[in-house]
């Protein structure tokens, strides 16, 4: 059921997005797992297009916010305005289902943190009044890892709220040719039709709970996360929230593959996107070129996969 839904959505998105099948799969896993995605890549790789195509294909409400240094929290959450003798709440762009936070690291930490409540709890509090967001609520944030001037790196607490961090990368030559041919006329995203709706997405998210995950695989997830904490090159390892995120993402990947059980391969595939952005490498080894992704790779090579004991 989930596999068919995935095929349908992926086919639709691929009408406008060429060569990002893996990123799309992981983003859909993020949607299923009820998490948020941070797209990190250089400009022009299709981050915005992918997020928009996904929102349209899923039939979800979509809003885009360009994050700038002068963006205020109320610009996101909304404000109470005095109108006709009473305060009336004017909802901000966060009141949607897919929010594209473009170049999120250009806004001040104060504005960035205005998203925390929405991302973690699916609600927004303005002037002491809490308003729920419509489910499913999915934040796709983008940031440019190269151009760091005038940016405010996301705080750890906010990074931890992102289920996945993905890098799209450049398409290969054949894919780029295909893209040019396809986008010769007007951009097809204008003609993209939804192939799902919010109710279906919610039912898919609920179906995820029925997946089987062997206790030994759960232990494998925990061992992986703990291995990042024990790594001598790491100043801050992955949190217990990271373990939860890894488990849910692995389950979502299994569901997208049409399985009702999780494989260790699902965990391995999810490990990089889920864990790397939550790990802080020690500064002294960072300057030697050690990255968080390498720490995750080391953990994957150090932790035994549960299979059969040979004695």
């Amino acid at each position: 059921m989930i596999e068919a839904w995935y095929e349908r959505v992926a086919r639709n998105v691929e009408r406008v997005m060429v060569g990002q099948a893996e990123a799309l799969r992981l983003m859909l896993a993020g949607v299923l797992a009820g998490g948020h995605v941070l797209l990190e890549d250089v400009p022009g790789t299709g981050k915005t297009t992918l997020a928009r195509a996904l929102a349209v294909s899923l039939g979800l409400g979509f809003k885009r916010v360009q994050f700038t240094p002068d963006l205020l929290p109320s610009d996101l959450t909304g404000v109470n305005v005095w109108q006709d003798g009473a305060f009336r709440f004017v909802p901000g762009p966060v009141f949607t289902q897919v929010l594209l936070a473009d170049e999120i690291n250009r806004a001040t930490p104060k504005t960035q943190s205005a998203l925390l409540e929405a991302m973690a709890e699916g609600q927004v509090t303005v002037d002491g009044e809490t308003r729920p967001l419509e489910a499913p609520f999915f934040v796709v944030a983008t940031q440019n890892p190269i151009e760091m001037d005038g940016t405010f790196p996301l705080p750890e607490a906010q990074l931890d709220r992102f289920l996945l961090r993905l890098r799209l990368g450049y398409p290969d030559a054949a894919e780029e040719v295909r893209m040019l041919e396809r986008l010769r006329a007007r951009h097809p995203i204008e003609a993209l039709e939804p192939v799902s709706d919010a109710a279906e997405v919610r039912s898919m998210q609920e179906a995820l709970a029925g997946l089987r995950m062997e206790p030994e695989l759960v232990r494998y997830v925990v061992d992986l996360v703990r291995a990042t904490r024990d790594d001598p090159d790491v100043a801050l390892g992955a949190s217990p929230r990271a373990a939860l995120a890894l488990q849910r993402t692995a389950m979502a990947l299994a569901a997208l593959a049409g399985r009702d059980y999780v494989l260790p391969d699902d965990v391995k595939q999810a490990a990089g996107p889920v864990l790397a952005h939550r790990i802080i490498v020690r500064p002294e080894v960072r300057i030697e070129g050690v990255t968080a992704a390498e720490v995750v790779e080391r953990a994957l090579k150090a932790v035994a996969v549960p299979t059969e004991e040979l004695g």
Binding site: L263, P264, K268, K301, A302, V305, T307, E308, L310
Partner: peptide, 26 residues
């Protein structure tokens, strides 16, 4: 099925052993 897979791992061990961190698929 599991016993067969285990026997397979034992049979392969002298020739191409499976590292502990490798999944069956890998």
């Amino acid at each position: 099925v599991r016993a067969a897979y285990r026997a397979f791992l034992l049979a392969m061990r002298p020739r191409l052993p499976r590292p502990a961190s490798e999944t069956p698929h890998e």
